[in-house]
């Protein structure tokens, strides 16, 4: 029992540390946020979008900007540990290294979720559609949970290569495709006014992805960091 509470404390400490670093440096979240907004502007003109956007397009646009922006956060979250040998300090902690994975996933989820919370009113304003919907927030949380847990795993992998963070999108996007399809479809359904019961298969897919990727991190993260 003591071991487990140590483990949880480690998860919490990694999470708290990441938040603290972000609070003091403010180098990750603002970049993600501005980038997400830029993607919205880029797509608006690239796809000739109109203010009265269909639910489907709004959901797709939201997820594309979230997926792109969170790549920045994921890369930063692991490259941070490379500076001043911070990773060595983390690895010295006498708990299973998957605790680092859960802590980092939690902080990445928090940052990406905050970006999403800013995007929702912005989208409502730009595209004349109320997106401040608690059920949409639930879908976003589920989708981002799966996306960031897979992303944290792959970011730890790509940071060890010679090309470092350049590799992450190439590894992450094809593997995250089912999560993005399910998240876009569920968001589209919510925005079109469908009850959650009708979107059950998409939500189950998101929940299953969460479980699978968290389990993969639990089992494999120690191996990824081993040196």
């Amino acid at each position: 029992m003591n071991g487990f509470s140590n483990y949880l404390r480690m998860v919490w400490q990694v999470f708290r540390k990441d938040l603290q670093v972000e609070w003091r440096g403010r180098q990750g979240l603002p970049v993600m946020l501005i980038f997400a907004l830029l993607v919205v502007f880029l797509f608006n003109f690239a796809l000739q979008l109109t203010p009265g956007l269909q639910a489907g397009l709004a959901a797709g646009l939201l997820w594309v900007s979230l997926a792109f922006a969170s790549t920045l956060g994921l890369n930063r979250s692991v490259s941070l540990e490379g500076e001043n040998n911070a990773l060595a300090g983390l690895l010295l902690a006498p708990v299973d290294r998957s605790a680092i994975f859960f802590g980092k996933t939690l902080s990445n989820l928090t940052f990406t979720f905050l970006v999403a919370l800013v995007l929702l009113p912005v989208f409502s304003l730009f595209y004349q559609q109320n997106m401040l919907n608690p059920r949409l927030v639930l879908v976003i949380l589920l989708g981002l949970g799966a996306y960031t847990s897979l992303g944290t795993l792959l970011a730890a992998l790509s940071i060890q290569t010679r090309t470092r963070d350049v590799l992450l999108p190439v590894l992450l996007y094809p593997l995250a495709l089912p999560v993005l399809i399910a998240a876009v479809e569920a968001s589209r359904g919510v925005l079109a006014g469908q009850p959650l019961a009708e979107l059950q298969s998409w939500l189950s897919l998101l929940i299953a992805s969460n479980i699978l990727f968290l389990a993969a991190g639990l089992l494999l993260f120690d191996t990824i960091l081993e040196e």
């Binding site: 897979l150 795993l153 792959l154 593997l175 995250a176 495709l177 089912p178 999560v179 399809i181 399910a182 897919l205 299953a208 992805s209 699978l212 990727f213 993969a216 494999l220």
Partner: peptide
């Protein structure tokens, strides 16, 4: 990790 996502991709 890849082999885990292939069935998810197919179903989605």
């Amino acid at each position: 990790v890849s082999v885990i996502t292939v069935p998810l991709t197919f179903f989605s």
